[in-house]
Amino acid sequence: MRILYHLPLSPYSRKVRMVLAEKRLPFELRAEKIWERQDSYLELNPACTVPTLIEDNGLVIPDSRVICEYLEEAYPDTALISRAQPERVETRRLVAWFDEKFYQEATRNLYWEKQLKPALKLGSPDANALRAGYANLKQHLLYIGWLAEHRRWLAGSGLSVADFAAAAQLSTLDFMGDVDWSVSPAAKEWYARIKSRPSFRAILSDRVNGMTPPPHYTDLDF
């Protein structure tokens, strides 16, 4: 069986988990403490990041964006990147937006400062980073809401990797209770649709030692 090395709250791991589940591809999860920099894992992924996917035939695929592109090429029956060129471009633009811009401006400022930094004993959270994270998260929610109001799904008419990229970032922050869904009812309605998909169920069942998600985290109707 294929193996996915991951961390439970890594948004990039969560994105790949949702794509695998949406394509109905079975896989085994293995948690990898990347900060320990184990030699065995470095041999698989010299960047020492998660996720890393190992296929049944031994093919090793690191990096969430590379993995998702590979899965789309290797298992095209459930298409998550449109065959229409404009929508393909928009899907990839939004995946880059959420993987890079959203993460740097919102997720990193909150997830890193509140969870990873203390856990790794790297000091106390930076108040300026937290303020920036919350302010940026509000703007990103408004943008997601705008997309949801003008399209059936974020990149266009069909569910795509872009939806999972956005949902992965938001689910990590929602687990920590950091998302104010009242900012954008349209974003909340879109996220509720994603939460209700079977491919999202395993994400909602994740638990992390020392952390308790808010009650609405697993509520499909909020």
Rank of each mutant, 00 (worst) to 15 (best):
A47H: 06
L80D: 01
N109S: 07
R93E: 06
F102K: 10
P118K: 10
I54Q: 08
D56Q: 13
T91N: 07
L20Q: 04
D63G: 06
M18L: 14
I61E: 02
L59V: 12
S40E: 15
T91P: 12
Y70N: 11
R83P: 01
A21P: 08
L120H: 10
P26D: 03
F98I: 04
V66F: 00
R30E: 15
T107V: 14
L59N: 00
S64V: 00
V50M: 12
P118R: 15
P86A: 03
P76F: 03
L59K: 09
D39V: 11
P76M: 06
L53I: 07
R30M: 02
T91L: 01
K23W: 03
E90C: 09
D39G: 02
Q38M: 13
A31L: 14
K101L: 01
E100I: 10
S40G: 02
I81T: 11
L71R: 08
Q115L: 11
L71T: 03
E113N: 15
T49N: 04
E32T: 05
C48V: 09
Y75T: 08
P76Y: 05
L120A: 13
R108V: 06
V19A: 15
E69A: 15
V60A: 03
T107E: 08
Q104M: 09
V50F: 00
E72R: 06
R37P: 12
K114A: 01
Y41G: 03
L44T: 11
I67V: 15
T78L: 06
G58P: 14
Y111A: 04
K114N: 14
L29K: 09
V66A: 02
F102W: 10
E22M: 04
K33R: 14
R37W: 04
E69H: 05
S82P: 10
I61V: 12
W97F: 13
L94R: 13
A79W: 07
I54D: 00
E90A: 11
A31M: 11
I61D: 03
P46G: 05
Q115V: 12
L94V: 15
